[in-house]
Amino acid sequence: MDIKKRAFKRSLWVYHLSGGSCNNCDIEILDCLTPRFDIERFGMVLVGSPRHADVLLCTGIVNKKCVERMREVYDQTAKPCVVVAIGACACSGGIFREGYQMAGPLEKIMPVDVYIPGCPPKPEAMIAGIVKLLEKIK
């Protein structure tokens, strides 16, 4: 566990998983990668496969159609894996809470470590959340 932990806190690879969002949170995540915010300076890269990921950035209410897929993705990640719920939707269901398609919020599907509320949270808020996460791991 120790060596895992040591490697873990160096450079976090993130995988972005959207389960029924309005895609604004997702765009703000991409925004974090672009020159203005540039989270790569913290060693974070967006990867294309959950198997490479240390962090899952999840957005959206988790609707009934994608709930199985999200579970699958979570199972594929190597543990330890940190799950971050981004946006009001993932944290609580937000405005879609009473909808018939709601299968979430995210915490019903997988264990969530960090909540970043907001609709959408600003990129600064996401970075702040992840930096806090890094401290927590240490």
């Binding site: 604004n24 765009i27 609707n63 159609k65 398609q101 709601m102």
Partner: peptide
Amino acid sequence: YNHRAIEKLSESKHWDQVTFLVERICGICS
């Protein structure tokens, strides 16, 4: 995969609240 029951939800919200709901259909053209 992204269905969020917006049309149905809209029937349970006040006229003014629906503007916020439909805003959240899409994040790019909000």
